[in-house]
């Protein structure tokens, strides 16, 4: 007779010889999950009508497709007009992010549960603003603003502003919710109102983190800005659309290369700025 951890007697004959990590109900659930995953993959492949054989032909054609894009037309990417658009893209990302960060500071203040001025009125509204601007993809925002305001960089800037509010606002308020409450209580005890609490107790604690988040947001919104022009919202994306629709593959590959280069530059810059 053997004794199990609960102290009940268990006869050795009932124990299985091989050790398995998961006991009966868990193992069944695990196999159920595996089965469900396989069935789900199979059903969705069927539902989406996916021609798997094209996947293999993609590799077969891979050489010929790549050769259509090679060599990239580097001269096109160094063209003065194009470089001007690149510069405008950088500015668009810059202005949009800055505007978004400035707006998201009060929103983050209202959307942090621990320091919000009013938990029943302002908190849900601020949460909703962040949720709504996060949920709609920045490309959709760009399309909507282009319809309302016309082509140009203003819709791009506004789309990036909303993107920043959703992105930075959420991270900002998460940062505020993680602060030490000691200073907040100290300011409240001396009779400070909630604005004073924000300025003297919260801001000093989150300043560094917020700066890091802002730089990271700038990096992300720059990535988005490179493509916003595809929907008419200014910047280099417009060139991408033009060259794709006229099937000038060599120019397309040059533009893609320039996007990748720019993003790498911005990533290095933002890593350096966050380190500093």
């Amino acid at each position: 007779m053997d004794v199990d951890p609960n102290g009940k007697a268990v006869s050795m004959a009932h124990k299985s010889v091989t050790w398995s990590r998961y006991k009966y109900p868990q193992s069944l659930i695990r196999y159920g999950v595996y089965l469900f995953t396989v069935v789900f993959i199979g059903y969705s492949l069927h539902y989406l009508n996916i021609p798997i054989e094209r996947f293999y032909t993609m590799f077969g054609l891979g050489g010929s497709i790549l050769s259509r894009y090679y060599p990239p037309d580097i001269a096109y990417a160094l063209d003065k007009d194009y470089l001007r658009y690149v510069f405008e893209t950088v500015q668009m990302a810059y202005v949009g992010t800055l505007l978004g960060v400035v707006i998201s500071i009060p929103i983050a203040w209202c959307a942090s549960f621990n320091v919000t001025p009013s938990r029943w009125l302002v908190y849900p509204i601020a949460r909703f603003i962040i949720m709504a601007s996060r949920s709609v993809h920045e490309m959709i925002w760009a399309i909507l603003f282009v319809i309302i305001l016309g082509y140009g960089m203003l819709p791009g800037v506004l789309a990036l502003t909303l993107f920043t509010i959703g992105f930075a606002g959420k991270l900002f308020s998460e940062e505020v919710e993680a602060i030490k409450m000691g200073p907040v209580e100290a300011i409240r005890a001396t009779g400070g109102n909630s604005l004073q609490v924000m300025v003297y107790a919260v801001l000093p604690q989150v300043k560094v983190a917020w700066t890091g988040i802002s730089i990271y947001t700038w990096d992300s919104s720059f990535r988005a800005a490179t493509v916003l022009g595809y929907f008419g919202a200014g910047g280099m994306g417009w060139y991408l659309k033009q060259t794709i629709e006229t099937l000038e593959n060599l120019k397309v590959s040059a533009i893609l290369l320039s996007i990748i280069m720019l993003v790498i530059v911005s990533e290095v810059t933002s890593a350096w700025a966050r380190g500093a």
Binding site: F55, M58, V227, V263, I264
Partner: peptide
């Protein structure tokens, strides 16, 4: 990793539409 993150999903979609045709794939 950098290559995958630096290209926006729209651009990836454009590339793959050219490679495997229209549709969910």
């Amino acid at each position: 990793m950098t290559l995958s993150r630096s290209v926006n999903e729209i651009v990836w979609a454009l590339i793959f539409v050219a490679a495997v045709g229209l549709g969910a794939f």
